[in-house]
Design a protein around this nucleic acid. Structure first.
Length: 345
DNA sequence: CAGACGTGGTT
DNA sequence: TAACCAAGTCT
């Protein structure tokens, strides 16, 4: 069978009409590829449209304050993508004279651009013959060629990249790469693919040997740690509240949140209140738990048990900010939901 | 290099 | 419903 030829033919008949496919300029391609990392098309699409509208060119993105970029990114997750996106826009606008690096090797040097994204931009925008290897490619190749290498193992990427490279028609890199991903997204889906309707079902090793559900092999299981958060929703005499920018290495770097009291285990109200009091650098008037049950917020690797506490004070807090002002800050989605529910007039 | 890093949809 | 997973990258 001529896998590549059939695949590209399938793609040309089945490709979706997506907003980042209107042209092949590096800017929209790069933007969409960053947004779609570990993210579904349906989830990323509205963000792409808003970004293109707010920042029609790399220059516009470079000139924006980081806070505005993060605010527009709010809710999409993996916020380092947004920070790296902004840093790279500046790099391109101010150091590279507004031009993206002209090849895979150069693109790979950009912040937030790894092997996958560099190959995607290089092939789609420049026609460079470099294979993309993403979750779709692992799945499609593992099934059709019956590759049972654990895709989470160290050597898997190299092996699948080599296989993809051997299949890639040098002059049709853009179509081939997008075809692999589109085929994985639409036909060769993770759960219960409709193999009866698949053009490769007579050749697919997984299908012909009854191993579609077993491939690709992924052994590593992700462990989730529980954390117990108490967010202090402060209200001073002016009705102002307190919010701080998170930095360091942990979750939500660059976003803002309320003063946080974290405990290593679940604590009762008396304990928690005592702890809250000891952390405050102002005199509280009242401390009241707002949430009856903890809000459960699940991240890919953490399960957050969050209580919100209203803390009032008779003082005027020097760094207090207006609630409407606070709502303009980029925040984790769980805080956004809280503010929408409790602060919306 | 194994683990950290979000959110939402699906099973 | 807990687990999986979705166009990965960084450290």
């Amino acid at each position: 069978m001529n896998f590549s030829k059939s695949l590209i033919q399938w793609f040309l008949h089945n490709k979706r009409d997506l907003p980042w496919r209107k042209n092949t300029y590096p800017y929209p391609v790069w933007l969409s590829e960053i947004m779609l990392q570990q993210t579904r098309v349906a989830q990323g699409m509205p963000y792409f449209l808003r970004f293109i509208e707010a920042f029609p060119t790399v220059q516009d993105l470079a000139d924006a304050p980081e806070e505005k970029v993060l605010k527009l990114w709010q809710g999409l997750g993996y916020y380092s993508r947004a920070r790296n996106l902004h840093a790279t826009a500046k790099e391109i606008a101010y150091t590279l004279n507004g031009n993206f690096p002209p090849d895979y090797k150069g693109l790979l040097k950009l912040k937030g651009v790894g092997e996958y994204t560099a190959a995607a931009i290089a092939s789609i925008s420049y026609g460079e013959a470099v294979p993309v290897v993403d979750g779709n490619v692992y799945r499609v190749l593992a099934r059709i060629y019956g590759v049972d290498t654990d895709i989470a193992s160290p050597g898997a990427k190299k092996q699948f990249t080599a296989l993809a490279a051997s299949l890639l028609p040098p002059r049709q890199a853009a179509d081939f790469n997008q075809a692999m991903m589109e085929f994985g997204a639409l036909q060769c889906v993770p759960k219960k693919p409709d193999c009866k309707a698949c053009i490769f079902n007579t050749d697919c090793v997984a299908f012909t040997t009854g191993r579609v559900q077993q491939l690709p092999v992924k052994l590593k299981k992700q462990k989730v740690t529980n954390r117990f958060f108490n967010y202090l929703v402060v209200k001073d005499v002016l009705g102002n509240t307190l919010m701080y920018r998170r930095d360091g290495k942990g979750i939500w770097h660059g976003l803002f949140d309320f003063p946080l009291v974290e405990t290593p285990v679940q604590t009762d109200d008396a304990q928690t209140i005592a702890l809250i009091k000891s952390t405050l650098d102002f005199a509280p008037q009242t401390i009241k738990r707002i949430t009856d049950e903890p809000v459960i917020h699940k991240l890919s690797h953490q399960k957050l048990h969050i209580h919100f506490w209203e803390v009032t004070t008779g003082q005027t807090l020097p760094n207090g900010i207006d609630l409407q002002q606070a709502m303009l800050l980029p925040v984790p989605i769980v805080l956004h939901i809280f503010m929408e529910k409790h602060w919306k007039a």
